[in-house]
């Protein structure tokens, strides 16, 4: 399998607090990698380092062969190939649903409006939000907003999708609809990195699970290995608590 991202010896600290301590991780084409761990373990920071929303202090991140941390790398170009879905949706409040989706394809990829509209509507359809294309984001429920956010990321035809706790800000009854969309993406072979507290989702959909604790990757493996036969004491503790 092709490596889409290679992380080598990644370090990140905020002031004196070391958040990521020497992380190395490979992400393969077509896999669904879930990162679990307690709050403050550094899992969100790791994800945000992948598209440089956080600038790491040290290390190498190779994305499709080019090093993100190289000063000469065009980070905006690489970001177009990495979609990101946020915990708080971050839809553009002043634009309606379809305009949220077509903004970047038009402005960044210089697509024609017609083309961008067609493809975005297709993506909205795939997340079940086509009927809401001309609605204002404020009129949508949390689950609907998050599905639009996914469609917006998909409209860029990314090679990989990064999910930063996509269901944590949702009412429990809305979680299902978002996870359904993510599941179907996984089935279509989309490469996904998902930071999540949804253990059921990790078990069911993930091809690999990484457990992070205190800035390091403590343990990783298939869902079966990690959930049913954890090796580390800390992992067992965590899993017991979240059940």
């Amino acid at each position: 399998m092709n490596k889409i991202i290679e992380i080598k010896n990644l370090k990140k600290s905020f002031g004196n607090t070391e958040v990521l301590k020497n992380i190395s991780l490979d992400i393969y084409q077509g896999e669904v990698l879930t990162i679990i761990g307690s709050s403050g373990s550094g899992k969100s920071t790791l994800l945000r380092c992948l598209n440089l929303l956080e600038e790491p202090n040290e290390g190498i991140i190779l994305f499709e062969g080019s090093n993100l941390l190289d000063q000469t790398t065009d980070i905006n170009l690489l970001r177009t190939k990495m979609g990101m879905v946020f915990q708080s949706f971050n839809l553009f409040n002043h634009k309606n649903v379809i305009d949220n989706c077509i903004l970047a394809p038009i402005q960044v990829l210089h697509q024609e409006k017609r083309m961008a509209m067609d493809y975005s509507l297709e993506m909205l359809d795939s997340v079940g939000m086509k009927d809401y294309a001309y609605q204002n984001p404020n009129a949508l429920s949390g689950g609907q907003k998050q599905r639009v956010a996914i469609a917006r990321a998909l409209a860029m035809k990314p090679d990989i999708l990064l999910f930063d706790e996509p269901t944590s800000a949702l009412d429990p009854e809305m979680v299902g609809e978002v996870l359904e969309v993510m599941k179907s993406l996984a089935l279509q072979g989309m490469t996904m990195v998902v930071v999540t507290h949804e253990m059921e989702f990790a078990k069911e959909v993930a091809s690999r699970v990484v457990f992070m604790d205190n800035g390091i990757i403590l343990e990783s493996g298939t869902p079966d290995e990690l959930f049913n036969h954890p090796k580390e004491e800390r992992t067992k503790q965590f899993l017991k608590r979240v059940r």
């Binding site: 177009t80 990495m82 979609g83 971050n90 402005q107 956010a149």
Partner: peptide, 8 residues
């Protein structure tokens, strides 16, 4: 962050 993550 959302805008930058889209490559703007």
């Amino acid at each position: 962050e959302a805008a930058r993550s889209l490559g703007l």
